[in-house]
Design a protein around this nucleic acid. Structure first.
Lengths: 148, 148
DNA sequence: TAATTACATTTGTATATACAATTATTGTAA
DNA sequence: TTACAATAATTGTATATACAAATGTAATTA
């Protein structure tokens, strides 16, 4: 991926600006790949993300603020995102018996099964976008990203 | 930035998955920083991006498909994005005299002046998010990102 | 205990984005 | 020259997202 070629500029930019643009380009490529991988399942990346969090609860339900806290990219409307998962039968929602302000969200059997399929598709997509990287490269990249 | 701490997971994931999530987290941090830096100017990141492209044309107008080609993150509706720039007086739009299908977009004087201010704000924001990086780090990061 | 504050979620609204369909213009081939 | 295809932009529609305001519940305090 050559930044200058992609955004078609001849002007040279600072290494700082180039880094930011570079990351943005990579992210947009990744997003596209992941979104495509999830298309057959009719879920967005965010919805997939929430399903993974719910599974990570190991049977325990999660309330909305917990979900929001753990999402990779925060979005200000978890209610409506969960609505979509309910409609698809991937999640359940009930009022918390001990604190009626809270809502308990859990993943359904159907959600579990579909998530397993999604995982496979995502793994394939990951492998595809990371094909140019050695294990060493990935370690280095993660180390550098930690500096953010 | 510690991925596991941010998304609050104990489960360990493959280096591949970790990399993808890591990049997504970084991007979301960068987006927030850049969007905040632009808030005083009442432009979105995409609008800023288009203004930069228009300036890069050095007086030559750009048509919509050119803009779309050069945008960092493609979005399917450049018409409406440019509408916003017109409303703010940052850009002009006229029909191309040689090919009436095309629309010529150019940056106004006001656009130029505001863009100069935005540049300053963006430079500050960049420096802030990249504070943990040496020049060497940035070079290495760019080299790794090229592998995408 | 009544009033106030804090918490958790939902709703409203404006804007952003993705994608498909439509309009207008130009180019080309029968 | 008419018909058809290609190009360029716009519009419509559904969904996504950001942010503020509203709702309902629980905890605190005067």
């Amino acid at each position: 991926m050559n930044v200058e070629k992609i955004i078609k500029t001849k002007k040279e930019m600072s290494i700082e600006t180039r880094t930011i643009i570079h990351l943005s380009l990579v992210n947009s490529k990744l997003n596209e790949a992941m979104t495509n991988a999830l298309k057959p399942f009719d879920v967005s990346l965010q919805q997939f993300n929430v399903l993974r969090i719910l599974r990570g609860q190991n049977g325990l339900p999660a309330n909305l603020s917990t979900l929001n806290e753990r999402m990779v990219t925060k979005m200000s409307n978890t209610t409506r995102l969960v609505d979509k998962l309910l409609l698809k039968g991937f999640a359940n929602r009930k009022i918390c018996p001990t604190n009626r302000r809270k809502i308990e969200i859990s993943i359904t059997q159907k959600g579990h099964e579909s998530l397993k399929e999604m995982d496979k598709a995502m793994e394939l997509a990951e492998a595809e976008v990371l094909v140019g990287f050695t294990h060493q490269d990935l370690e280095e990249l993660n180390t550098l990203l930690d500096k953010f």
